[in-house]
Design a binder for these strands. Sequence first.
DNA 1: GTTTATGCAAAACCTTTGCATTTTG
DNA 2: CAAAATGCAAAGGTTTTGCATAAAC
Lengths: 158, 158
Amino acid sequence: MNTQHQTMEQRIAHFREVCRLAEVKLTHQRLEIFREVARAGDHPDAETIYRRVREHLPVVSLDTVYRTLWLLKDLGLVTALGSHHERARFDANLDHHHHFVCIDCGMTVDFYSDSFDRLEIPESVQSVGAVEVLQVEMRGRCHACAMKSERRKQENRR
Amino acid sequence: MNTQHQTMEQRIAHFREVCRLAEVKLTHQRLEIFREVARAGDHPDAETIYRRVREHLPVVSLDTVYRTLWLLKDLGLVTALGSHHERARFDANLDHHHHFVCIDCGMTVDFYSDSFDRLEIPESVQSVGAVEVLQVEMRGRCHACAMKSERRKQENRR
DNA sequence: GTTTATGCAAAACCTTTGCATTTTG
DNA sequence: CAAAATGCAAAGGTTTTGCATAAAC
């Protein structure tokens, strides 16, 4: 779905529909939190969203903002960068490489690719800053986690 | 510098040399922590490195592991993924896009690129897992931060 | 009316810091 | 021996959780 050229009204309507289908209650807080994330173009953190929401809706707490943001992520309405429960990890591999990251277990594997290494920086990026490192991040499910989730589905069917 | 085909002895020698040039003391703890990160291929977190180091060197504390890892990063000997003091951030932009991230202030800007979108997944990755999202991450210094650090250098010259 | 979400406060978690002691160059 | 690094314990910041109350369906 293309979010770029949707009006705020269309996004809110979509949000309502997703909540209805997921049988999730549409509270005043959730609506305002979604509206604030949808309006933002600057990848705000939970604290920032909390502050912005409070300008319109004084009765909201930080923990509700957190709970709602992870809910929105589960519903596929937002994505999370540098997501929760992620601690700093270290790598002594200084060669130019790229990453596969498992969205379930967090396992990260290094990969080498000449075609990835040869990618050119778009001009539009150069107007924002000077790129020092270009790295491709591939996210998906590793085979081990894919098997685990398959097994879980089969158990639930019984 | 290519780390891939260096022996552990070469890496340790390089570590010693970098410490000497930077006038940083080479302690037993630092040597063992570096050795453990250099040996690891699995992007371990600080706690994991701490556990592994303790098997060889019982007298080491978690805070020394942290201090040493950030030192190694400053010395350019390791890189950090999902680095410190980084909180979760949220994005309602569901269109396929890519990121520029400022290494100083953390500002993240979305970019669109057809050539990035058309990248093919290398076969070697497919043997590890099923890629769902491919995203290019460009890291560097935004113009605002570049100007700030220029100004700081000039002030120090006076 | 029943189920679910909220706010509050307290906890959990990862990471950093101050200070006395030890180690390095 | 002077300067810097360590361990300890305590604090810091972010995110999560349990529970009584309130709101949505």
